[in-house]
Design a binder for these strands. Sequence first.
DNA 1: AAGAGACCCTGGATGC
DNA 2: TGCATCCAGGGTCTCT
Length: 272
Amino acid sequence: MPELPEVQTILDAIATLIIDQPIADVIVGWEGVIDRPPLPVFLNELRGRRVTGVERRGKYMLFRLDDGHWLVMHLRMTGRMRVVAASEPRDRHDHLVLQLEDGREWRFNDTRKFGRAYLVPDPADVTQRLGPEPLSDDFSSDYLAAALTGRKAPIKSLLLDQRLVAGIGNIYADEALYRACIHPLRPGGSLDAQEVAAVAAAVKSVLAQALTEMGTTLRDYRRPDGSVGSFQNSLQVFRRTGEPCPTCGAPIRRIIVGGRSTHFCPEEQRQT
DNA sequence: AAGAGACCCTGGATGC
DNA sequence: TGCATCCAGGGTCTCT
């Protein structure tokens, strides 16, 4: 569920709550949440450590530990993070609980069990294959043009390919293509230089705005303090099927692209 | 190699 | 009300 703006917002909020707090103990409610290393090693290596810094790469959260290793986490669709008093009752979907020395608990909750935790010497062990950060200068019109050359897959699907660019999910792919006036089914390689530039700029603008609005809350996403984001109020096409396009009034259409729900304006985003 | 589809899960919304 | 079906903001794997 969370995309780049949501992950960054959660990370910013959680950082101040956990940095430099020793992890007294670790409780795993569902073993599948640990991707690597094997559970006993994971527990042994994490106990007694403390987080010294946080970073984000695509939709991955990176927690640097005081022994130089990294706790890497991905929230996937329904993952949530909170830091609460240990006395607060646990939820059945609290799969990973890090008990902090001061009596609080850092809890990872995930209804659909897609989220994962990794404990690795180098975060690149997990994030190696990710493409550039969309808000960095590495994600330029030139980069995108080269990456799209010869590609026949729909531009929508390519924006969701984390190897091409890291951090975009279904919401912001649809919103960016709307801003760029590009039909989601256009083959990536069919975009001319001007259209590629429009897509790159739209990706950056929609993500930057969503960051300032602390993300989009449709259902599951919450900031660690329980509050919601506000970008859902700025959505122009996503989940607005049948509603009028903000620009021309034509009804927003919903189609399936690459197995994902896709929303666009048939007038502003022409197929040809 | 690129692209399409299956799969991993649970629960809320919708339809009959 | 009860039950079935569909749907979900992600990523990885397999097959072609």
